[in-house]
Amino acid sequence: EPREEEAEKYIKRANGDYDKAQELAKKDGNEEIAEAIKEYKKR
């Protein structure tokens, strides 16, 4: 799923820090991806 791939990219950029990844996504205006990262975190 493209959303998950995007989320993974942010998580990698944030060195595995989900909260930081979420912030990066929000900064880029990717609210949807920020949500996907939140879902990811719950797994």
Rank of each mutant, 00 (worst) to 15 (best):
K38W: 10
E23R: 07
K41L: 07
R13G: 04
K27L: 14
E6M: 12
K26V: 11
E31G: 08
R3G: 12
I33D: 02
E35K: 10
E23D: 08
E6H: 06
Y10V: 01
A36C: 10
Y18M: 07
E5G: 10
A34D: 02
Q22P: 00
E6R: 06
E39H: 07
Y10K: 00
L24K: 03
Y40M: 14
E5K: 14
E1G: 14
E35T: 08
G16Q: 04
Q22K: 05
E23Q: 10
R13S: 06
N30G: 03
E32V: 09
R43I: 09
R13I: 09
I11W: 03
P2W: 15
L24G: 02
E23W: 12
G16A: 02
Y10A: 02
Q22N: 04
E39V: 07
E1T: 14
A34E: 05
P2L: 14
N30P: 00
R13A: 12
D17M: 02
K20W: 10
E4H: 13
K9G: 10
K38R: 13
K38E: 12
A7T: 07
Y18R: 03
A7K: 03
A25W: 01
Q22C: 12
R3Y: 15
I11N: 02
R13F: 09
A36Q: 11
E1M: 13
D17C: 04
A14C: 14
E35Y: 08
K9Q: 11
R3D: 12
K20R: 11
I37P: 00
K41V: 06
Y40W: 09
A21D: 00
E32W: 12
A7H: 04
E32R: 12
E4G: 08
N30Y: 13
P2F: 14
I37Y: 01
P2R: 14
N30C: 05
E32L: 12
E31I: 13
A14D: 00
K9D: 10
K41M: 10
K9P: 03
A34P: 02
E6C: 08
I33N: 01
P2T: 15
R43W: 10
E23L: 10
N30I: 04
E5R: 13
A25D: 00
K20M: 12
E5N: 13
K38N: 07
K38G: 08
I37H: 00
G16T: 02
I37S: 01
R3P: 11
L24P: 00
Y18F: 12
K41G: 06
Q22D: 03
E1P: 13
E8P: 02
G29E: 04
R43F: 09
G16D: 03
E1R: 14
E23H: 06
A25S: 02
D19C: 11
E23F: 09
E23V: 07
E32M: 10
K38Q: 10
K42W: 08
A14S: 04
A34L: 10
K42L: 11
G29H: 05
G29S: 04
I11A: 01
Y10R: 00
I33P: 01
I37T: 01
A36K: 12
G16E: 03
Q22V: 15
E35Q: 11
Q22H: 10
G29T: 02
Y18S: 03
K42E: 11
I11G: 01
D19M: 06
K41Y: 07
N30D: 05
I33Y: 03
A7N: 02
E31F: 15
A21F: 00
D17V: 03
E4M: 15
R43C: 06
K27E: 12
K9A: 14
Y40N: 03
N30W: 07
A21T: 01
A25T: 01
K38S: 08
A7F: 11
R3W: 15
E6K: 06
E1L: 13
Y18G: 01
A14V: 04
I37K: 00
D19W: 06
A25G: 01
K12G: 05
E32C: 07
D17E: 03
A25V: 02
K38P: 02
N30K: 15
I11K: 02
K26H: 09
D28M: 04
E32F: 09
L24C: 03
N15Q: 09
Y10W: 04
G29W: 02
E8H: 08
P2H: 14
Y10E: 00
G16F: 10
E8N: 07
D19A: 07
A34G: 05
P2A: 14
E32Y: 10
I33F: 03
D28T: 03
A34R: 04
G16Y: 11
A36E: 07
D17A: 03
E8R: 14
K26S: 09
I11T: 01
R43M: 09
Y40L: 15
D17S: 05
A7W: 12
A7S: 05
K26F: 11
L24H: 04
Y40E: 04
N15G: 13
K26W: 11
G16W: 12
E39D: 08
K9T: 08
E31Q: 09
R43V: 08
E5D: 12
E35W: 08
A21G: 02
N30Q: 12
L24R: 04
P2N: 14
A14Q: 02
I33Q: 03
D28K: 02
E4Y: 14
E6L: 14
L24F: 07
K20G: 04
P2D: 14
E5L: 14
K12Q: 11
K42N: 12
I33W: 03
Y18C: 05
D28S: 04
A25Y: 01
E8C: 15
P2E: 13
E23I: 08
E39N: 08
E4W: 15
E31W: 15
E6A: 11
K12I: 09
Y10L: 02
K12E: 09
E8Y: 14
R13T: 06
Q22G: 06
A7Y: 07
P2K: 14
K12S: 09
K27N: 11
N30F: 14
E4Q: 12
K26Q: 10
A7P: 04
D19Y: 06
I11E: 01
E4K: 10
A14R: 00
R13H: 06
R3V: 13
K27F: 11
A36R: 10
K42H: 10
Y18D: 01
D19H: 06
A36T: 08
E39Q: 11
